[in-house]
Each structure stands twice: as C-alpha cells, then as structure tokens.
C-alpha cells in the first residue's frame, strides 16, 4: 500500500497522539487523501538515518484561532518505507510495510507487573494532570497499561530522535522501561 508522507521529526509509537498544524497546500492535499483513504505516514525525512515512519489516522480536527487547520493524529503502527516518489506538488508517497513493535498485541487491560512499572504509571499520570494540552489530546488514557505508559514516556522525554529510535526494536521494551525509570524516578 502506498501512503502520503508528512515530513516531521516526531517520534510517535503505536497509540501515540500528536497535534499537527497544516497549512501548506501539499499537506492540505495529504489530509484530503488521508481522510478518504487509509491515513498517512509521519516520517523524519532522513533516509540515511532509517526508513521508519509512524502510520497515523486522523482522530480529530479543528480550525485554530489563526484559521490554520489543526489535526490530531494517532499512530496505528510503525512502518518501514520504500519506493519513495513525489508528485508535482512535492507531496511524497511511499510503500509501507508494517513493523512489529513491542506494543503490538498488548491489550490496554494489562496491569503493572512490578514496582518500576507502577512508579512510571503514577509519574505519567502526574504529567497528564499537569499539562492540559497533553491531557486533552488523549480522550482515553491507559495509565494502567505498562506498555502504553512506557511508550508515552519515550515520546515525551527530551531525548534526540537518534536515541529514541533504539526503542523501535521489537525486543526493546525492557530497555525502554529501564531507560525511562532512570530518568524520571529518583533512586536516592
């Protein structure tokens, strides 16, 4: 399947939601295509880094105070990209291949397994409580799910894309969990 690409250096894992302002003609076109078909892909655009993007669906949209279109998008899965091409309006398209991620197949009903996961969940709840923009972005929060919790933490931590992409690997959940824990929980 070929999907249009929105070039943005955003790291978004499955079920992650972000808000995008759309005003460029090519990206307004992307929104039209995406809402009629099967979503679009957010990709950082640097092929020398990797060809991995986030396949997203538009879950909400509104008009901003400056009349710019604002869309909320939710990541359905990570995808590998190939066969890039661009149309006459400089909108890129690529063929997608789903990439298996540690988040896949984890139901939201999962309960925390250990003290680390419990602490991360409590800490993330506090972040959501404090930041209304984030709070409002997620209609449903799965703060009891350790996978959901760790994925959201990875997205919001101030770490470069190059480092975050370590957590794309399907077996990187434990690394991600311990990484977040060592940043957000005071062990002294």
């Amino acid at each position: 399947m070929k999907l249009p690409i929105f070039t943005l250096p955003i790291f978004l894992l499955p079920q992650g939601i972000t808000r995008i302002r759309v005003y460029e003609p090519r990206y307004l076109k992307l929104v039209r295509i995406a809402s009629q078909n099967d979503g679009f892909v957010i990709y950082h655009g640097n092929k020398t880094v990797d060809n991995v993007g986030s396949w997203v669906n538009i879950v909400n949209f509104e008009q901003g105070d400056d009349d710019v279109l604002i869309i909320d998008v939710e990541c359905r899965s990570l995808v590998g990209l190939s066969e890039f091409e661009a149309d006459e309006e400089q909108l890129s398209f690529a063929t997608i291949n789903k990439i298996t991620h540690w988040f896949d197949g984890k139901t939201q009903q999962q309960k925390v397994n250990d003290e680390i996961e419990r602490e991360l969940s409590v800490a993330l709840r506090a972040v959501f409580d404090e930041h209304s923009v984030l709070q409002n972005l997620y209609e449903t929060k799965f703060l009891d799910s350790p996978y959901w919790t760790v994925a959201r933490w990875i997205e919001i931590l101030p770490v470069s894309y190059a480092d975050k992409r370590s957590f794309i690997a399907s077996d990187s959940y434990e690394q991600a969990k311990s990484f977040v824990y060592s940043v957000v929980v005071d062990k002294n």
């Binding site: 972000t18 808000r19 302002r21 005003y23 931590l157």
Partner: peptide
C-alpha cells in the same frame, strides 16, 4: 515551511 506546520509534543529538559 515544514516545521511551522506542527506541534512538538515532547517535554523540554526544563519542563521535566
């Protein structure tokens, strides 16, 4: 052009 279109949803070190 590209960047202006979006919101980062990442925290800053100061925010954290």
């Amino acid at each position: 052009q590209v960047i202006k279109g979006f919101y980062f949803n990442e925290m800053s070190q100061e925010q954290l």
